[in-house]
Design a protein around this nucleic acid. Structure first.
Lengths: 229, 229
DNA sequence: GCAAAAGTGTTGAGCGTACACCCATGC
DNA sequence: GCATGGGTGTACGCTCAACACTTTTGC
């Protein structure tokens, strides 16, 4: 997709940090640039903001172009505007992160990129510009947020086991939880609906499936409840 | 102070939410615009970002111009970029808040304003553009932050009493604390240095003065301590 | 039957909360 | 001496952390 120069705000971009969970590993989507500067290097996906779109819309547009997904949890993190963060000219970038269901389907690199790939946050390649810094800042932000708001569920399929949930938090926070205590704590909140379903096709005792109940959360929140892990 | 048009990034501004504590009331500095649009209305102080300054520098420049203060606690909050937030053209603004020692001295309205004044956050005038929204967002941000990092001290003079400290938290958070419990909690953290000084000129028992020890805090923080109120 | 993960309770320590009275000072 | 805020301790309930074994299922 190309845009006419007169439709583009020249000095403002949005960059996306798109997180996905792959088998207890937190991963982030990166693209390989096929334009100068830094042709061939890995970068956060992003693009310039258009005159007729909000910042949020700009970030969602990028995400949609790359993954085909539109109804996704996204949040603004921070704005990076050091004078020399971008070569040759001044570009201020607003960072957004997204939590999506990990997938390998439908990934498109987009017009400015030759490749797109998931990277484990513990094994990142070198990134262009200040993207390493942006990613680190966002990870800190996510780690703080995930502890105090029930957003982690966005990384899981609708139906999940308690072990998967625990693995998610361990991957994001880089810690280990005591299984019994974790279950007690999360179940006492009453945010999870136990389903009459269990895992299928596993070579061991099948775990019960749960789903997160957003409505219940909002009701509880209105009454003063705060999620805290 | 005027700037040449070619030195100015046309589409990006910073806006400052400057907080001060006046006798157990949380106040914010506003200016009265003396330019169109919305001439004569109250607004957050701010201005366009220059090509040769970082976003942080831009916010600090505004603050310095208005208060003469330079060594001040400041932090970026959020970036507001709705298409129609600013009339006639597209302006994205990055909000910063500052915590300063309340003062009436040296306040200067600046070139685009005819007046400058402190307002109680509970008695705000109508504000231009989306400044009301920006202010509310920033207040929420501050309330969350003040609970988990010892930044409240920035609003107090170097030497303060425990009652003043308690009053500060009550003003910012809009709550009431139990005096005994508040003192126990804050003193147990070992962040306050009791001084061999007391209040002077008060018509009651003079309270002991304390000062906040930033070094101690950073040492404790490195060891895993987290401030929590 | 064995490998692999699911699932489950108790105890002790520390923390948060609730609560009321005497003290020092200035006028 | 009185008005004003300064300063202090205890007891209870709750939450958090530590800790190990049995159950179910597929192969």
């Amino acid at each position: 997709m190309d845009y006419r120069p007169e439709d583009i705000l020249p000095s403002i971009s949005t960059d996306n940090i798109i997180f996905g969970l792959d088998n207890r590993k937190l991963k982030v989507l990166l693209i390989r640039r096929n334009i100068e500067p830094f042709l061939g290097n890995w970068a956060l996906p992003g693009g310039f903001v258009l005159y007729n779109e909000d910042l949020d819309m700009s970030a969602r547009r990028t995400l949609q172009n790359m993954t085909g997904m539109s109804n996704v949890y996204m949040e603004q993190v921070y704005t990076f505007g050091a004078v020399n963060r971008f070569p040759d000219r001044r570009v201020v970038t607003v960072a957004y992160y997204a939590l999506i269901n990990y997938t390998l389907d439908n990934l498109k690199a987009g017009p400015d990129a030759s490749d797109i790939n998931w990277f484990d946050i513990l094994e990142l390649p070198d990134l262009v510009f200040d993207h390493q810094h942006i990613l680190e800042t966002t990870l800190e932000f996510l780690r703080a947020k995930v502890r105090t708001e029930p957003i982690g569920f966005e990384l899981l399929p609708q139906k999940f086991t308690l072990t998967e949930l625990q693995g998610l938090y361990e991957a994001v926070l880089g810690t280990v939880f005591d299984t019994r205590n974790f279950r007690k704590k999360i179940l006492k909140m009453n945010l999870l609906m136990p389903l009459d379903e269990t895992q299928v096709g596993v070579a061991h005792r099948a775990a019960r499936l749960y789903s997160f109940n957003k409505e219940t959360y909002h009701k509880l929140k209105d009454k003063g409840f705060t999620f805290e892990l």
